[in-house]
Design a protein around this nucleic acid. Sequence first.
DNA 1: CAACGAATTTCGTTAAGCGAAACACCGTTG
DNA 2: CAACGGTGTTTCGCTTAACGAAATTCGTTG
Lengths: 261, 261
Amino acid sequence: MGKAGDQYSVLPVAKAMQVFAYVASQAHDVTLTEVVQALGMPKTTVFRYLQTLSAAGLFAHDIVQDRYGVGNRFRELARVDALYHSLRSTAEGELDELVDDFRETVNLAVLADHEVVYVDIREATRSQRFQARIGHRHPVHSTSLGKAMAAFLPLEAVERLVRPQFEQRTYRTLTDARTFRRHVEETRKRGFAIETGENEDGVTCIGVPILDGKGYPIAAVSLSAPDTRMRATAERAAGALQDAARRITATLPPISLHTSV
Amino acid sequence: MGKAGDQYSVLPVAKAMQVFAYVASQAHDVTLTEVVQALGMPKTTVFRYLQTLSAAGLFAHDIVQDRYGVGNRFRELARVDALYHSLRSTAEGELDELVDDFRETVNLAVLADHEVVYVDIREATRSQRFQARIGHRHPVHSTSLGKAMAAFLPLEAVERLVRPQFEQRTYRTLTDARTFRRHVEETRKRGFAIETGENEDGVTCIGVPILDGKGYPIAAVSLSAPDTRMRATAERAAGALQDAARRITATLPPISLHTSV
DNA sequence: CAACGAATTTCGTTAAGCGAAACACCGTTG
DNA sequence: CAACGGTGTTTCGCTTAACGAAATTCGTTG
């Protein structure tokens, strides 16, 4: 339990985290003096940390009883993390199998701020020249990942993604709202998304959504390969991706990001 | 989102919590520069916070990829909080009903560090002179709460509670290991615990355990009243407490504190 | 191999975190 | 009713240690 030390540790932060850990692990809401006695820190210091953490929303300060407990913001963060953690850890095995099976690049992504964010990537092939990286973002309209998720969003949510003029990534990129809506609609009926050189010249992608317990698309998996190689395996790929997505859905915790908050 | 401000806020802590919130809400593990760009803080500062939070175990630092993500310690705290939060919020209504029904003091407690810790208390009657307070602790051996939980613990765990000589709280308090084991055994057979003036002169308590999904006693509820008044209602009280405990158990999340870690 | 981007390390400045102590505010007690 | 003990809040100087610019290392890329 090195409280200080680690060369670059910021002491106020480290100590505040001790307070945090203490409060979070108590079954009851705590008082200032209780924390002081438990951790042996000066009263003023603990007071300030409790105030700071409350102001940040991680704690809730019950003014009436003068007690501090874990706050909603913390629970919200924990909920989101639990979902994403579960997503990544159970997706891991599925991604591996897909790579083994198809020897092509496999992507896992979520939707954030109207963009596709890559969460995990398995590269089977050599030239990783133009591959995305974890954390990188691509547009919704030019990726199979984006279209797969959009297709299973409620209509209002889809409309919030629509732009009068989408960014043109390649000469094949769809750029108008009308075409985007049509692609989304086709994807919904088909059950998986196809994107052919719309995001990157010469690269075709098949994407399927990963739905949470409530049927909301929380993420998507895709297989991407050069057009030439993809043509033969597109159908089988779609099936394999859908199977993987279903299995991932099955192990997700029963919480939804869309309903909460 | 008052980042600073609140009179007593400690800036390093407040800013570190921004970093914390950002990292926790991303679906992927993040890099230093990603956080820097997202939050607009100086590189050095963010670096130090990431180091500090990693040292505290709240983050996990993937050295290979140089990425930071939520750590196990955070998840552990979140798990504990979720359980206790659920316990308290669903117990609330039950406690109210018990107080309404019996017009006597009702207690909710957990076991921590070999002691009974009061988590919630409803006082029906006037003289709150000697009532416990939230966060206060009482011995296991002298309370119905403690005996109720001990009775449903595995034997090794019970033995860890045994002392050669227990504290004598009243002239009726059991003080030897032998008697304690006998009480625990009787409580297990009976299904609820009785304590008559062993913790406090003239006060009788009936306690029942609240079991988690795995059958471990995570908490206990008790009804306490003057000996005289309790005699008549003891049987009915035990039944009502057991019903309440069962209902609380049913709504608890499917996590156990005893298996994890 | 040069050049870039990203993470670490150094270092001097100065702001601000710190904690003792004083203060205010109960609820309690004799 | 007044004194008390225990809590939370506020003040106030001291000095520490947080800060961030810049330099450095490291790895990657063209």
